[in-house]
Computed example of a mutant assay.
Amino acid sequence: MSGRNYYVVSYDIMDPRRLQKVHKTMKGFGEPLHYSVFRCDLTLKGRAELLVALHQLIQHDQDRVMIIDLGPADGRVAERIEFLGVRTREPDRGAIIV
């Protein structure tokens, strides 16, 4: 399966330095919805790379990461995320040049 799924990734990191590293890493995988909540559009390989990166950064006896699979990126994901108050800006889905 080579399709892409949307994931919501949320984390609680106890050390400020690790928190900064995790946040910086997450910016490489997705769009921030809040400081410690990201929406990621990933292939299975991208999800595996994310898991490896986070596994290496966090302290497993102190920190916590939650990953929620919202399903296919071409599905109805936008309808599954609801905001109250100020809504985050949708990422630009313009042309991708490879």
Rank of each mutant, 00 (worst) to 15 (best):
M1W: 03
S2F: 04
S2A: 11
G3F: 03
R4P: 02
R4E: 10
R4I: 04
N5R: 00
N5W: 04
N5E: 02
Y7E: 03
Y7F: 09
Y7A: 00
Y7V: 09
V9L: 08
S10C: 11
S10V: 06
Y11E: 07
Y11I: 07
D12W: 10
M14D: 15
D15F: 04
D15R: 10
D15G: 03
P16Q: 11
P16E: 14
P16G: 08
R17K: 10
R18S: 14
L19K: 02
Q20L: 14
V22C: 06
V22T: 05
V22K: 03
V22G: 01
V22S: 04
H23M: 09
H23E: 10
K24E: 10
K24G: 11
K24H: 14
T25L: 07
G28H: 09
G28K: 02
G28N: 02
G28D: 09
F29W: 03
G30L: 03
G30W: 12
E31V: 10
E31C: 09
E31R: 11
P32S: 11
P32N: 14
P32T: 11
L33P: 12
Y35L: 10
S36M: 07
V37K: 06
F38I: 01
R39L: 12
R39W: 11
D41M: 09
D41G: 01
L42F: 11
T43Q: 01
T43K: 01
T43V: 07
L44I: 12
G46R: 13
G46V: 03
R47D: 00
A48K: 05
A48Y: 10
E49D: 15
E49W: 13
L50M: 13
L50V: 09
L51R: 11
L51C: 15
L51K: 14
L54N: 04
L54T: 06
L54Q: 07
L54G: 04
H55S: 15
Q56H: 14
L57C: 13
L57W: 08
L57I: 14
L57Y: 03
I58T: 13
I58A: 10
Q59M: 15
H60N: 05
H60M: 05
D61L: 07
D61G: 04
Q62S: 15
D63L: 01
R64L: 14
R64K: 13
R64N: 15
R64I: 13
V65Y: 08
V65F: 09
M66R: 13
M66A: 02
M66G: 06
M66S: 05
I68E: 01
L70Q: 05
L70P: 06
P72I: 02
P72S: 00
A73C: 11
D74H: 07
G75F: 00
G75E: 06
G75Y: 00
V77M: 01
V77Y: 00
V77D: 01
A78P: 01
A78C: 07
A78S: 05
E79H: 09
E79Q: 14
E79I: 02
L84N: 07
L84V: 10
G85N: 13
V86A: 11
V86C: 14
T88C: 14
T88Y: 09
R89Q: 15
R89V: 15
R89T: 14
P91Q: 08
P91E: 13
P91K: 07
D92Y: 05
R93P: 06
G94V: 11
G94Q: 09
A95N: 12
A95V: 05
I96F: 03
I96P: 00
I97Y: 01
V98M: 07
